Amino acid sequence: MKIAIASDHAGFDQKPAMIEYLKGLGHEVVDLGPDSAERCDYPDYADKVARRVASGDAERGVLICGTGIGMALTADKVAGVRAAVIQTPQFAHLFREHNNGNVLCISGRFTTFEVNKQIVDEFLTTEFGGGRHEGRVQKIMREDDPDFGGVEE
């Protein structure tokens, strides 16, 4: 699987090890930065990963920042992306199974690397459940359409 990955300064310490971990699992990994732990703006890196996933140039994205929150807020605004902050392997499983999530946002400050590896494993190995979840994902994605006027009251 081709995976785009990036971090900000707060997630940088875990990024090199995560890249090596992913490569060790046989994945192709595209590192979109940064190249150091110097302070940087997480929205820039979240945008890079989200656009790679949305265009199909990467099958999944992994973003690491202090909490994952800012990365998720940014990435999810890119049409075609379903991004979320995930803090447990169980949530990662459900994110894929129920929401067909394609960009994982994790915390480099509050979650250990060992737990983040477990989260990434679930994110990469869990298949979308389809079925009753398919219609719900379609409803999520209609929000990307600028002509969608919202659900009528």
Rank of each mutant, 00 (worst) to 15 (best):
F123G: 08
Y45L: 02
V137W: 03
K77M: 06
T88G: 07
A58W: 00
K48R: 14
A92C: 11
D13H: 13
A92V: 11
G149P: 01
G11E: 14
F128D: 07
E38C: 00
S36M: 09
V49M: 02
T126I: 02
F110Q: 10
C40F: 12
A58C: 06
L32E: 08
G61R: 07
I3E: 07
R136G: 07
A79D: 15
D35G: 08
K139F: 02
F113L: 15
G150Y: 15
G70Q: 11
G68P: 10
V151D: 13
R52T: 00
E20Y: 03
S107K: 01
R60E: 06
I5F: 05
I119L: 11
I5C: 04
D44M: 15
P146F: 14
G80Q: 01
E143S: 12
R39W: 07
Q118M: 12
I69E: 14
F128K: 07
G131C: 01
P16G: 08
V85S: 09
L104D: 09
E122F: 05
F128W: 12
L124T: 14
T125I: 10
G61L: 02
M1I: 05
V30S: 06
R132M: 03
N100I: 01
V115Y: 02
R96G: 05
A6G: 07
R60A: 04
E122M: 13
I3V: 13
T126H: 00
A17G: 10
Y21F: 15
G26E: 12
G135P: 10
F95Y: 13
V103E: 09
Q118W: 01
C105Q: 10
A4H: 04
D35L: 12
M141I: 03
G150L: 13
T112I: 12
G131L: 08
